[in-house]
Design a protein around this nucleic acid. Structure first.
Lengths: 194, 194, 194, 194
DNA sequence: TATGAATGAGAATTCATTCAT
DNA sequence: AATGAATGAATTCTCATTCAT
């Protein structure tokens, strides 16, 4: 019953932080909506900030797990980029609360670079960047791509992935499936004109 | 001197909202940093929220002005898309405070769709979407592009532009000029393989 | 009316801190008893601790004033010691709140030596010690005293003065005038047996 | 092991109350530092206050034991006063925690006279007063002292003893041995000039 | 004996806002 | 146009204490 309540608190807080933002969510609200009293929050966590931090950590742990689950061997390099984009689309569709929580709160916490939030996001972006860089370099070498300025392209792809992720989470419900157009878009941009 | 002070307040508040977020900026801080007292804020504005609203309105007014200043007649359609992207790059570089203010606060205000912030952003996105749609359709018709699913592509381009805008404003100082790679990227993806 | 309220707060807080101790006095109590609201305390002071600090500073400012008002020229050295003792008796009788505030709170604040309270008390004790040392040395030289171990005697006198000060402030209402016996006691102990 | 733990709690609490004061010591801190959990405190004691009370009782029980161990028969009356003063010096040196606990907390608890703390201290002071009164009267009768106003002198000596006790426990580490100067000081003040 | 989990009652502090001038 | 003083309503957090086991 202990882990139970702690987990419930995390889950309630995630929903609230995602919907209202960290600053607009009160500890009282979290407690009430979880069905516990405020002091219990402080029994399980050091404070409001720690609840947030634990959520963030949990989210990125899961995210890392998914990333490392992507197939290492693929027919070609674009397949890997495809996989990465689909993974993000999948996350946006299946974990909207977690996604929104990040989008809604992390830029607001950007004032201090040392905030866990920023640190974790930075690390994550680096991992994806490395993943993309590897694809692009191999694809260039093999002649699959004619994508020369690798470092720049990595950032461009990152921007596109982030942009789509935001759109799916924050945008009006768009006529879906534009995401797959985005993948085609990349494919066309990257692969050699034959 | 009246307009003077009101303008000073707006300018200070913009900087603070951009750097710390709306919720983490106090009226006292705005007043002190402007060099006035709190009641004066209430003389010029109805309240904190109104200061924010006026800033947003100002930003989008200027933004609209810039948008409508884009050349209507260009050699080809991609030129127009190119112009749109460059405009956003330009804004990110020259109006960082305004840009950050939007990015840092608006998604957090997404709880109620009726918020001015959300409304204005939505309208703006629609305008750009229309702009892009027009380009793509004309480009498709003329054979410049072989980009068929216009509606989807509009969103993809929007996502990319937003993604780059964010990156420039919130990301670490990247080795610049990836933005131009992004433009090439689009060019390759949109125009016919010849 | 501003200084007015601030002064009232100080005076109420002094009474309460003296009677109940710092920790057992709430800001709400101070506010209510002063006839203002809690936030006003925070308008005039940085916090509860600062109220305390200002009180302490005020007390010792006044105390210093009294000390420096003691006559420099006296018939003999014991007269000066007499004056010092009488001054403390006088303070205990006329400024009971201030006295009790110090006695009741300062040792409790002794955990950190850097607390204003401790610093100020230390400085004050040094001043009196210097005063006494001067008396004793001069009295020894002139043959008025046969009080040889000056440094030790200074401490002994300090202890006695402090002890009497405490007794008067914290003790049951004793049959008064034992204080003057204390002065005689010192006189006998210090001056030469003739 | 039961008595064991209870004793450990008392000993930890004594140290904490002495160093930080009653109000600034939390039950959680006592529990943690003892190596037990909070509910165990409530198994052994009725509450935080009772822990304090038991400590106080223990201290004064020991103190009474020491007092009653003082030799009844001495060569002269000053010897007894000497013994009393040395006893306090000894306690201050060997039981600093207990001493500090009293000094740091009891005056703060002075708000209600009915507090155990105050009661016990009062009783104790009476016992010493009686002890001193007996000495002084006998010494006066025998011609050892020419100290006439016995009741007043009792208080004066009490003040001095208390003052020295405080100094030793709360003061900066002074060049020791001023305490023995204090004893001489009393001797000179009390005994007849010959 | 002993504990993990939970809470009621309050504490200090903050903040947008207003009033009197 | 401008301010010093003041406040209502919250907000985060603490702490002694208890319950169920």
């Amino acid at each position: 019953m202990a882990k139970n309540k702690k987990q419930k608190i995390i889950s309630t807080a995630t929903k609230l932080f995602a919907a209202q933002g960290f600053d607009n969510t009160t500890t009282l609200q979290i407690a009430k909506e979880t069905g516990v009293t405020e002091p219990l929050l402080y029994y399980h966590f050091q404070g409001k900030e720690e609840i947030f931090t634990e959520i963030i950590k949990g989210i990125f742990q899961e995210y890392s797990r998914l990333l490392s689950g992507l197939p290492e061997e693929t027919e070609n390099q674009f397949e890997k980029i495809n996989n990465l984009m689909r993974l993000h689309i999948h996350i946006a569709e299946n974990r909207p609360d977690e996604g929104r929580l990040i989008l809604a709160n992390c830029p607001g916490k950007l004032k201090n670079d040392t905030h866990v939030c920023q640190q974790i996001i930075d690390k994550q972006q680096e991992i994806i960047a490395a993943y993309l860089k590897d694809c692009l370099e191999k694809g260039n070498d093999s002649g699959e791509f004619d994508a020369h300025p690798v470092d720049h392209l990595v950032i461009v792809l990152l921007c596109l992935i982030n942009g789509i992720f935001r759109k799916k989470l924050l945008g009006k419900k768009e006529k879906a499936s534009y995401e797959y157009t985005a993948i085609d878009f990349c494919h066309k941009a990257l692969t050699k004109k034959s």
